[in-house]
Design a protein around this nucleic acid. Sequence first.
DNA 1: TTTGCTATCACATTTTCGTGTTAAGTAATT
DNA 2: AATTACTTAACACGAAAATGTGATAGCAAA
Lengths: 222, 222
Amino acid sequence: MTVYSKKKSQDSMDIISVAIVEDNHDIRTAMELLINGSEGYACVGTFNNAETAQEQIPHLLPNVVLMDFNLPGGMNGIECIARLKAEFPDMQFMMLTVYEDDDKIFQALEAGASGYILKKTSPGELLEAIRDVHEGGSPMSSQIARRVVAYFQKQAKPNPALEALTSREKEILDQLSKGFLYKEIASNLYISIETVRRHVHNIYEKLHVRSRTDAVNKYYNR
Amino acid sequence: MTVYSKKKSQDSMDIISVAIVEDNHDIRTAMELLINGSEGYACVGTFNNAETAQEQIPHLLPNVVLMDFNLPGGMNGIECIARLKAEFPDMQFMMLTVYEDDDKIFQALEAGASGYILKKTSPGELLEAIRDVHEGGSPMSSQIARRVVAYFQKQAKPNPALEALTSREKEILDQLSKGFLYKEIASNLYISIETVRRHVHNIYEKLHVRSRTDAVNKYYNR
DNA sequence: TTTGCTATCACATTTTCGTGTTAAGTAATT
DNA sequence: AATTACTTAACACGAAAATGTGATAGCAAA
């Protein structure tokens, strides 16, 4: 793909403007040089902490923001993304980090990051990922993708502990989860309150919980 | 349950065995030729419908199954994956289809597919994807990945009614959702039980609910 | 200054919940 | 025929939660 390097001040039409938030000086500088040295990319700002980024990025309005996870100061990268994304929904964020844990990945995606790549990624792939996220993709390694996919597969199958429940107990638990009072459940299922209490008691025993809320949380696999 | 026979495990150490379920004859044959013509890959079976695949794949035990979406007969590719995956959790499934709709993607992932690639993918990339899924990745185009990521971001945004809560109330609600007793919440937040009660009362009023479970359900957007 | 929102604490009463114990009828299994 | 598991039901006790009302105080906006 060739880029028509016009010298017009109305930039960001063909050139992808990028901001970098990364506390490590060497990495930050290396990425800045890489981006500014590549046709079609321009680094419009670099920041070593979330607070400054938070303050400056609204003025720079880059197309893509590369964000580190750990940053000095009170705000981490996730929170920084969440705030900026809320204000600028069209801005694209890409996590650029060393972490591969599920927690961090999901937090980043929920906060509004669209891409998630590791710092060990090669310069060429990094540039490609920046273009990719700018064009509506979600660049991530297939290992990262597998984590995300695993989340779906987990969601799909319910807690195995629920299998131990009888069908009547599941029915009761479903009613519990909807917030019905015992008397309402009794009336809904045409049984006495005492029976409801008995079932609830058995359910709690099987799920190893001691309260309705905990039981419902298990029911929804939390 | 995943017991491979001795002689099979020996030659499937380096070679990835693949099965293809695809009703279009030309595509099926082309893929078979591609796979058998490439070093490190072996096509151990091809099927033009889900029923036959269902019956034969348990005997073939391929490492990777390429699955089409639409198949003739009663069973579609999704259901076929779901059944086989339940019996052979270590078998890897990759959707190979023309569809890019969210529904189909999510259905496939929930059923147990780990990869999702489009039929327009080049032969080289297909082979790479097969190896990738076999090695624990989840190959998918970054456009597909974006759909999946978007799902997370949708999930993430909470019930707008929660916006009406003050930050303290949200904190209380979060504690409620975790099943803490009032006294525990009081102790966790260093306030009196009476204050907890007051907050809970206000929360219920703002969310228009009358019980803890209902409040928690709203909190989780159900 | 007043008004409104938030956070805090208190008292009284009623209702619901969690637990323990007992037990009868049914259905499936051994 | 005996055993086991499930569903149903009742009574009692104490803890927890819900309801209703009243009060004080800080803080910010009108």
